[in-house]
Design a protein around this nucleic acid. Structure first.
Lengths: 136, 136
DNA sequence: CATAAGGGTTCCACCAGCTGGAAGGTCAAG
DNA sequence: CTTGACCTTCCAGCTGGTGGAACCCTTATG
């Protein structure tokens, strides 16, 4: 199967597939003409990758997961550890973004948004919450 | 004031300050020896940038905000528009990450995490929710 | 048989937003 | 005069691709 077919089936752009091969996540066979020839197994790995990426796993985490997937003797604890690490990363980022959101929403709310120049958003950014002077 | 002092006061690494100058966000004066010489105004801009970045504004949004900040005749509506755009971006990302989190948490929950190989996480990634076969 | 469309291939550059490091100039202290 | 801590510039690399150029291969059509 050619790359564009594989791309369609796995729901991944052809460019991305080439990139994945480049970094060693997949190794499709090559035809006599040099074209990549994707097997069902290749497709399977691609789909696995696509789903893992959609869940936000990093490329290196995907690599680890693929290795565990291929290892019939893995302990599920190893897989769970990877997933839990990622979950913790997501939670940390969520907390950070929710804090951002809260501040930002308050600022947006406080701004009249008319054609006068007074703007609490700019005021906050300019002197926001912390003093810059007299620290050193 | 030298760059390391400015960095300390504004809470931004010196490298980042050089980068900000490189992309035209700040233009500190130079001493006879070629060293950057930061004025209070430069510090002010740096602190503004630091806070805006901490709120997740992109560099280009920061540039826009700095311009509005410098324009005594701006309409607060313009500022609010930038902030609202950013708020919408954050909300979109939050929704995406919360969806990820829900799926991931369910997977983690369903995995025994012992030394047996059976793992619902891998099963899900391998065949997860969508079929890869017979689409094209 | 020529040619044009629509595949495929490689490689190089670019995006955000820095960060690390090398190579070298400057400055203050002992 | 040397040491060490600054400063400077520039180049490379990080993540996870994406766009584009230049070129090869295949297939259909006149």
């Amino acid at each position: 199967m050619n790359i564009s077919q594989a791309a369609k089936r796995a729901g991944v752009p052809a460019k991305t597939i080439r990139y994945y091969e480049d970094i060693g996540l997949i190794t499709p066979a090559r035809g006599a003409n040099g074209y990549r020839d994707f097997s069902d197994q290749d497709l399977h790995r691609l789909a696995f990758l696509a789903r893992a990426r959609r869940l936000g796993f990093s490329i290196e985490q995907c690599r680890a997961l693929l290795e565990l997937y291929a290892d019939r003797n893995r302990a599920s604890a190893e897989v769970k550890a990877v997933a839990q690490t990622h979950l913790a990363e997501i939670d940390a980022k969520l907390a950070e973004m929710q804090a951002m959101r809260a501040t930002l929403a308050a600022l947006v709310h406080s701004c009249a948004g008319d054609n006068r120049p007074d703007c609490p958003i700019l005021s906050d950014l300019a002197s926001g919450s912390q003093t810059i002077a007299a620290q050193g």
